[in-house]
Design a protein around this nucleic acid. Sequence first.
DNA 1: TTTTTTCCTTGACAAAAGTTAAGGGAAGGC
DNA 2: GCCTTCCCTTAACTTTTGTCAAGGAAAAAA
Lengths: 232, 232
Amino acid sequence: MPSKNLSVELAKNPLFSTLETEQRERLIESGNPQNYPAGQWITHYGSSWPYLFYVEEGLVEALKESPEGRSLVIMELEKGMVFWGIGFFKEGVGMPVAFIAKENSRLLLWSREQLLPLLLDNGFFSWELSKLMVERMLRASEIVEELAFQPVAARLALFLLEQFGDRAGDTVTRDLTLDEMAARIGSTREMVCRQLYKLADKGMIQINRTELKITNLRSLQDAAESWKGGDR
Amino acid sequence: MPSKNLSVELAKNPLFSTLETEQRERLIESGNPQNYPAGQWITHYGSSWPYLFYVEEGLVEALKESPEGRSLVIMELEKGMVFWGIGFFKEGVGMPVAFIAKENSRLLLWSREQLLPLLLDNGFFSWELSKLMVERMLRASEIVEELAFQPVAARLALFLLEQFGDRAGDTVTRDLTLDEMAARIGSTREMVCRQLYKLADKGMIQINRTELKITNLRSLQDAAESWKGGDR
DNA sequence: TTTTTTCCTTGACAAAAGTTAAGGGAAGGC
DNA sequence: GCCTTCCCTTAACTTTTGTCAAGGAAAAAA
């Protein structure tokens, strides 16, 4: 039986908050809880995967991989977030991203068959799902824009701002490897390393092997957008 | 009053085919028909635009533009297709793409207020809309993948296949300018020109100032995916 | 503590992509 | 037919990005 706690957690999500408490608890009952140890693939690129899921615990990454071995992290799904496989909506279509558990994670899955009655019946639930889909689309749109128009340096600056912008001035530990950063901005380890030190040369950040500090938030922000203004 | 004809046309769209004939005709009545001459902006990047629309006639392009003046065509909306502005789903969010009429076009627009009652009430309609959203997401995903992992040459080959693949062997007129092609693959005019002649050098296509012929479909297909196999 | 392993850092180099500039063909207007 | 205007095409060059290779620091394992 579902813990009262989980129901409360679910209720914080805009999607599930459209449901009555009792309905939500029934939904939890019907869901399929799955545990994934850190590092495990939840589903692979190209596979059919007809589920919608809620991240009960842990951290899941959605990523693309090229045949040549490069990868691009599309988004991170934290506790409380909802996502889905394409198969949930359309049969016979392969996943455009893979999901992998970055930490020990617990997901609550629903198949289309399980959820479709609710979706057809509850307009508010459907509407919230649509809004969620739009958010994901906006994220994809952002990625397209950056890849198409921004050079690596700007994408890196942007990434630093997203990641550490709120701790500007503080010395933070570099908790991501160069490869991980590269996968987030669509580049390579070496490129990221060089660009980091270039930003340091310009006084925007301070950096050493293990730590990093944003020393000039403003100029880092400038670098993140209209890169063309800057020099080499 | 809506022409019988339009109702019949609408019925061919999976979204509107979920409705009863009478309901559909009422929807047509309530919609806001708008004409846009070729070349006119329908909405700009970043603006709020809270409509869902059906392309009654003409051709609409969804595109992104960089501050530096480059542009990227995300998709073409032909007669019979449906799309929307973000504002339809979420208030206060600007458009991630602009819409422009490429030909004289006639759209049928609905605001959120007009359509929401229907969406909340009719689960099948909502579900079809969700499926449509997923299709758009898949397209975005494809673009991300290509930009992140494929070099210009492969993206161009891919574009040629999409555009002319079904007429392989035929001599077709180049109806897009180099700039237009560049905007479709995310590159520049000169780059496209060079790459076209490189494909010609390799015998995949024949090309002159005004026409083009795919002479070796197979090798063009190879070029489009695992580019790494190829040489210079 | 020692040994491995992992990861960061750099330089040298190669490849890809973009920019500038110049010249010429094609189509449409006069 | 002539003149614009709009494109296409190319070459030369610059900038950006990626790859390879080597060395060294830090962290984990033994």
